[in-house]
């Protein structure tokens, strides 16, 4: 059953996308309505602070980590094994 539901959703990905965007707007609207007396710091008083923080944090993290991986960290999968065999020769 779950497979059918998921396949149906996958076939209607466009609708799903708009539902998702509507959900995001809904969250922001919800943020206008709530009380904030227990603010821990200035950011807690700004409406939509966590949305902005998350969005830029998320993009920044992806770009930074993937970039670092591409320029430096990523090596072929047999990186450690290969060095050993080279050394044995």
């Amino acid at each position: 059953m779950i497979v059918k539901i998921l396949s149906y959703l996958q076939d209607h990905a466009r609708v799903l996308k708009w539902v998702f965007f509507a959900f995001l707007v809904g969250i922001l609207v919800f943020d206008f309505t709530i009380e904030r007396h227990h603010a821990h710091f200035w950011g807690d008083k700004v409406i939509g602070f966590w949305a902005l923080f998350t969005f830029f944090g998320c993009l920044g993290m992806i770009v930074f980590c993937k970039g670092l991986s591409h320029v430096w960290l990523a090596q072929p999968e047999d990186y450690y094994d290969r060095e050993e065999t080279e050394n044995d020769e």
């Binding site: 998702f20 959900f23 939509g48 966590w50 923080f53 998350t54």
Partner: peptide
């Protein structure tokens, strides 16, 4: 609200 914003906008980032 804070949690939904974090989750929702991470989804947007992805």
């Amino acid at each position: 609200s804070e949690t939904l914003q974090i989750l929702g906008f991470t989804g947007l980032g992805f």
